[in-house]
Design a protein around this nucleic acid. Structure first.
Length: 171
DNA sequence: GCCAACGTTGGC
DNA sequence: GCCAACGTTGGC
């Protein structure tokens, strides 16, 4: 299994939005490197760190999971979309995406400042100066450390809390 | 195929 | 809002 980091501007689509909709086609990516990761490298069940960019503060806020095979980004065919691409055809799509599903919100968000401060995490791509790639691989040991520092126990589905036994008290 | 101009990303 | 870094475009 591979690990990834995916960026999103929270004012556009946040971890809270993903938690609500549960599953989201990662549309609008218009960078070939990022596209290639979704198109040819990602596998279902791969886990991703969800990063809030252009945020205050920026940082890693949650965990998502790849939950589909690659498929064409529908926004490329939609003239009304800001992501419309006149050079794309249904016979030859240019932009591919995968769907991500919500896994967890980190109990403790890790700000970019904290990532850069941590001696191990400072080597992450997202910490490097000028790093702009919105989807990129993450080393397994970085993923593990982020999970640990963020307080995520690694459970890939929330444990349902059973309702308390209903007791009727008689006065 | 080079590279200058331009556009975008994203931290600060 | 500024600006550094990077990606894309298009003239030649």
């Amino acid at each position: 299994m591979s690990h990834w980091l995916i960026k999103s501007e929270p004012e556009v689509f946040s971890i809270t939005d993903l938690a609500r909709v549960r599953r989201e086609p990662w549309s609008g990516v218009r960078n070939y490197q990022a596209r290639n990761f979704m198109w040819k490298v990602m596998q279902p069940d791969d886990l991703a760190l969800f990063y809030h960019s252009n945020a205050n503060p920026p940082g890693i806020v949650g965990i998502a999971r790849v939950c589909s095979q690659p498929h064409p980004d529908p926004t490329q065919f939609d003239p009304a979309s800001e992501y419309f691409d006149p050079k794309a055809t249904s016979g030859h799509p240019r932009w591919w995406l995968v769907d991500f599903e919500y896994v967890a919100t980190l109990p403790r968000m890790l700000t970019l400042t904290e990532l850069k401060t941590d001696p191990e995490l400072a080597a992450m791509t997202v910490c490097q100066r000028g790093s702009r790639l919105s989807i990129h691989p993450v080393a397994a040991h970085h993923f593990a450390r982020v999970s640990q520092l963020g307080g995520w126990d690694g459970a890939t589905r929330p444990i349902p809390t059973p309702p308390p036994p209903h007791t009727i008290s008689f006065p």
